[in-house]
């Protein structure tokens, strides 16, 4: 019996970054694999470490095929990110759930007409606090950015009291953390 897999709208690439200070940033970034069906997504997800089990300094990135997980990529350079910053104790309680919900939002194209604005998502495992972000293509596209932020926040199950911010990569690249201003909040 022939069983047809369920195709995704996009082919996605999973990247893994492991911080090795003896190598360049780009050498530390490795493409793990690409997939374009629901079934192949789960095969990959169940095969790799949960984000909460990674060591500090590691990242996973999931980007549309053809977009590299860096600001400099042509698809990213005018864009920005909806950033979720987690407190240390949330690694144990919420990190893996938030990351899975993020992945499902991406592969399911859950941002309706604005899904084309999405480039990918990144999770950073860091001792001082983990971060998850959805990257979009155009920081000036207000309607798209706001819609994506609202839908994302809803999928994470964040209360209306929690505020998340959108930062343009151009600002992130030039300003230090304390000066970082959010272009939008939801």
């Amino acid at each position: 019996e022939h069983i047809t897999k369920h195709p995704l709208q996009n082919r996605w690439a999973l990247w893994f970054f492991k911080n090795d200070k003896s190598k360049t940033w780009q050498d530390n970034l490795r493409l793990v694999t690409k997939f374009d069906t629901v079934e192949d997504f789960w095969a990959l997800y169940s095969h790799i470490q949960l984000a909460s089990k990674l060591t500090s300094g590691c990242d996973y990135s999931l980007f549309k095929d053809g977009i590299e997980p860096m600001w400099e990529d042509n698809w990213n350079k005018h864009g920005g990110r909806w950033l979720i910053t987690l407190a240390k104790q949330q690694r144990r309680t919420e990190l893996d759930r938030f990351w899975l919900e993020t992945l499902l939002c991406l592969i399911g194209e859950m941002f309706c007409d604005y899904s084309d604005d999405v480039c990918g998502a990144v999770i950073n495992i860091r001792a001082k606090g983990d971060k998850i972000a959805i990257w979009t293509r155009e920081a000036e596209n207000r309607d798209g950015v706001i819609h994506i932020g609202r839908v994302y926040k809803e999928h994470l199950g964040l209360s209306s009291k929690v505020v998340i911010g959108y930062q343009a990569h151009a600002d992130t690249a030039t300003k230090s953390g304390s000066l970082m201003k959010s272009r939008f909040i939801v």
Binding site: I3, Q9, Y45, E101, I107
Partner: peptide, 20 residues
């Protein structure tokens, strides 16, 4: 049309065996 899947649909496949 666009291939859009909601969360519950995607989760239904999480523990499905790859081959039946």
């Amino acid at each position: 049309g666009k291939k859009q899947y909601d969360r519950d649909f995607l989760l239904d496949f999480q523990f499905m065996p790859a081959c039946i």
